[in-house]
Design a protein around this nucleic acid. Structure first.
Length: 467
RNA sequence: GGCGGAGUAGCCAAAUGGUAAGGCAAUGGUUUGCAAAACCGUCAUGCGAGGGUUCGAUUCCCUCCUCCGCCUCCA
């Protein structure tokens, strides 16, 4: 497949360096609270990338870290009166539960920073030895940006702009750090009282690792000096990924990531999502409004990953209808299939255009459009063709990570007895052509949040709104 | 200020130098006791504004307007 690369700003083919397995790294969550849908836009698109590669026959090795030690995790664990370890474990568990609901494949490896302190210390040691890093008086260690000429390549900063950053900083916090250059960033943070128990011994004194270094160290541990692709939200381009390149290329001498994949931020109601505006949604918030995680996933893949996506509650309702339409289309297609046809076809039939979209810079909205068009064009297929088409349809849904609702009808067991008896009474009234009675009972059902739909041989009930 | 991105119907959102996918909503019809559901249709002479290049531009170039992100630890 072809994918845009942030570093070269060109579309390039994704081919595993080692010829067998596509090895990639994603910056994972900082586990100090529930992830929001903006975080999940990134994780969902990374998931679609992996699924698309795998559907296309490429083996993958997916590594995504858990940031379980930083300012926020330390601060909030203390506030919660918990140890850092149990605090982050709780939020990690919550994150995994959300991921499962969203249909995200678990990474093959999910390392945590706290479990890789020795690797991080070793990498800092290498950087100090090679003259790319230096300790300061407060027990911290800094990366020396001037020792790495390639700095700024990813985010397209030149020296002049870095100098600008320097002077800005010099004004605001010149006495805060003892750095040679104000652009230098921290690799190891010397122990401070507010860190509580969260410190580890090192050759430079007690302290804890810096955030940027965490990813570099774990990448080297699990993917080596060079690997296929690195990914994260656009906000990580600078400084996080820029710093990773500097650390890793200086420490390992390798070429680091061959490809950079960045996902643009989500907007809510046309603006930035923030707690103070009350538009920062978690999966739980949306579930409380009656929306499933799969509906959220549908909305998140509804825009191209390099364009801003405007998230609205209305779009979630639209997603529910769209998913139901897909489910219906799949049922109709399945009913046309020759029962004994063996599904060996490797092509996508009427869904070829959708698959092509996905392979052309991960165009998920284009693929969704292609699926609906393919469904429409499947109407006149023969039994054999329908079977092949259905196979293509299913592969496409797997690549997008969508699972379809079974149907809109609630299982009988979920319908309260009182509702059931009302509906039965209404059905009896209808059979007796007692329309007035029937309409009154229908009104009562609506009041209780249930829609009734009449069929030839009976009715079906559907929950009208949020559970 | 620097760097980067975006402006397409009521909403969400693609593709494309040759006349605008798809979804939601809306709406007409068939059906239904009436609705809902289902089924069959309709729904941008237009792609932020103004110039330019071209036989032809939403698509390329220029100017302008608006919005958004990053600029030291936020996906």
């Amino acid at each position: 497949m072809r994918l845009f690369d942030t570093l070269t700003r060109t579309e390039r083919n994704l081919e595993p360096i080692d010829g067998t397995t596509f090895r990639f790294y994603c910056c994972g969550p900082t586990v100090y609270g529930p992830a929001h849908i903006g975080n999940f836009r990134t994780f969902v698109l990374q998931d679609v990338l992996r699924r698309t590669l795998e559907t296309g026959g490429t083996r993958t090795l997916h590594v995504r870290n858990i940031t379980d030690v930083d300012d926020k995790t330390i601060r909030d664990s203390q506030k919660a009166g918990q140890s850092l370890q149990s605090f982050t474990a709780g939020w990690t568990e919550k994150f995994h539960a959300d991921c499962e609901k969203l249909g995200l494949l678990l990474p093959h490896i999910e390392p945590g920073a706290v479990d890789h302190i020795p690797q991080q210390i070793a990498m800092i040691g290498t950087l100090v030895e090679k003259g790319h890093a230096y300790p300061s008086d407060d027990g911290s260690v800094y990366f020396k940006i001037s020792s790495f000429p390639g700095y700024g390549r990813l985010s397209h900063l030149d020296e002049r702009e870095l100098d600008l950053g320097k002077t800005q900083n010099a004004r605001s916090s010149s006495d805060e750090y003892e750095k040679d250059s104000l652009s230098d960033f921290v690799l190891w943070k010397g122990r401070k009282p507010e860190d509580g128990d969260s410190f580890w011994p090192s050759p430079w004194g007690e302290g804890r690792p810096g955030w940027h270094l965490e990813c570099s160290a774990m990448i080297q541990e699990y993917l080596g000096d060079s690997f296929d692709l690195h990914s994260g939200g656009v906000d990580l381009v600078f400084p996080h990924h820029e710093n990773e390149i500097a650390q890793s290329e200086c420490a390992c001498g390798g070429r680091f990531a061959a490809h950079w994949f960045h996902i643009t931020h989500l907007l809510v109601d046309g603006g930035k999502m923030s707690k103070s505006l009350g538009n920062l949604y978690t999966l739980e918030d949306l579930a409380a409004r009656g929306h499933t995680a799969m509906e959220v996933r549908y909305v998140l893949i509804g825009a191209h990953y390099r364009k801003p996506l405007n998230f609205t509650l209305d779009s979630l309702s639209g997603a529910r209808e769209a998913l139901a339409k897909l489910a219906k289309g799949a049922r109709q297609l399945a009913s046309k299939c020759e029962p004994d046809t063996r599904l060996t076809s490797a092509d996508f039939g009427p869904f070829q255009a959708a698959w092509d979209s996905l392979n052309h810079d991960l165009n998920t909205p284009g693929a969704l459009g292609g699926i609906f068009t393919g469904l429409r064009d499947s109407a006149s297929l023969s039994g054999h063709e329908a079977a092949a088409a259905l196979a293509g349809f299913n592969r496409l849904l797997r690549a997008l990570g969508l699972t379809l609702p079974e149907g809109t009808v609630q299982a009988t067991s979920e319908i309260p007895d009182s509702v059931k008896s009302l509906a039965d009474a209404r059905w009896a009234a209808r059979l007796a052509k007692n329309w007035a009675e029937s309409d009154i009972l229908r009104g009562q059902l609506v009041e209780q949040g249930w829609l009734v739909k009449d069929g030839k041989d009976g009715y079906t009930l559907e929950s009208a709104s949020a559970p």
